[in-house]
Write a protein that binds this DNA or RNA. Structure first.
Lengths: 192, 192
DNA sequence: AAATGAATTGAACACCTGTTTAATTGCAAC
DNA sequence: GTTGCAATTAAACAGGTGTTCAATTCATTT
């Protein structure tokens, strides 16, 4: 019979994920050992294999869940309205969502090359989905620019925030988002 | 007496650098072993230590030289002219320079955390110098925006090109640079 | 209290890590 | 042709790698 309330396993799994997230973000996938992760959880290395089939899956699941949450969060937050309103909303959404998940974002950008080809393809597909979200909005905005190029330019700009934004800095989250809304608006406006 | 022409050492050193550059870019600093680098050069691992005191210095030198070349190249290419002309020139310079050095650029962004604190500080200082170049230009452009924020936004946008640009793709180098000049011009233009 | 099965340990596996060093090779100078 | 030194090798060092598994502990159910 299944236990009525959470088994030890069900409580430990999130701890393993959290430890892996923190350590991978800090030191990089290749530089972090299963024994380090285990130590962070307070367990021996062998015990980790009750929660993940291997180290690679640990990384992959971190990235897959992150991308899934990103897509779901946008699907739930995506507003109706004029193309420009939706563009504003996307900029704010992206910045806030990414600020709240700095470690997962960092891993998802830095550890792509440590995925097996199959796992890489999955993540890449989800990333393409997210890029399409912005591309479609930009198309609706009717910018006279190269849609794909502008999409990638804007996304690079927005994601770049994570490399310098720190809580408690000169600008707070809302101020940063406001500034980028302004930047992106100008970016997509027709040339004078 | 010193040899008249280049010793074997002087011919091998660049090969070691090139192998390390390629392998670090491909697999990441932590995932690449000295034995792999040595194999690529066609030598035993121990022989590498005639060309570098240790693995860390190999990485650091790659990044330091890259940043130095970047700063020197701009110093030599930097034109006079109106602020907007200088901004255009910077955008073109940055994109072309980075396209030509994809591996070094990649390493310089991805392997920062694998530097010792002292080495990190050096690279970070050089990066700050380069950021100031653009910040000064933007200031001269008299944009009514937050100068530091705009600087980082533009740099993230420009450097992002390296994540998707591939030679032989839909757009050639010049077309990409032209597009980004347009994007950046709009970005810094006053709001309507 | 006894039984059950999940959770965990600790040791072992085969192999890889960066780095050092004595011994050897290779090559230019005399 | 011998000397002398730079370049290289092969082996060793101490320790770390991801992963497996028999043995043990632990907590719950009966």
């Amino acid at each position: 019979m299944a236990r009525k309330s959470g088994s030890s396993s069900e409580k430990t799994r999130p701890l393993v994920r959290a430890a892996a997230l923190r350590l991978f973000a800090q030191g990089g996938y290749a530089a972090v050992s299963m024994r380090q992760i285990a130590a962070e959880v307070g367990v021996q290395a062998g015990a980790l294999y009750r929660y993940t089939p291997d180290k690679q899956s640990l990384l992959f699941e971190l990235m897959r869940v992150h991308m899934e949450e990103l897509l779901v969060a946008w699907a739930e937050a995506a507003p109706q309205g004029t193309p420009l309103e939706r563009l504003d909303a996307f900029v704010r959404f992206h910045i806030h969502h990414h600020m709240d998940r700095a470690e997962a974002v960092f891993i998802s950008y830095m550890e792509l090359r440590n995925l097996t080809p199959e796992n890489f393809a999955v993540i890449e597909g989800m990333r393409a989905q997210y890029e399409r979200v912005l591309e479609d909005i930009l198309t609706d905005c009717g910018a006279d620019t190269d849609g794909k190029l502008t999409t990638l330019a804007v996304l690079a700009m927005l994601t770049g925030v994570n490399t310098w934004y720190r809580e408690g800095g000169r600008l707070d989250r809302a101020a940063v988002a406001d500034s980028y809304v302004g930047l992106v608006r100008r970016l997509v406006s027709a040339t004078a």
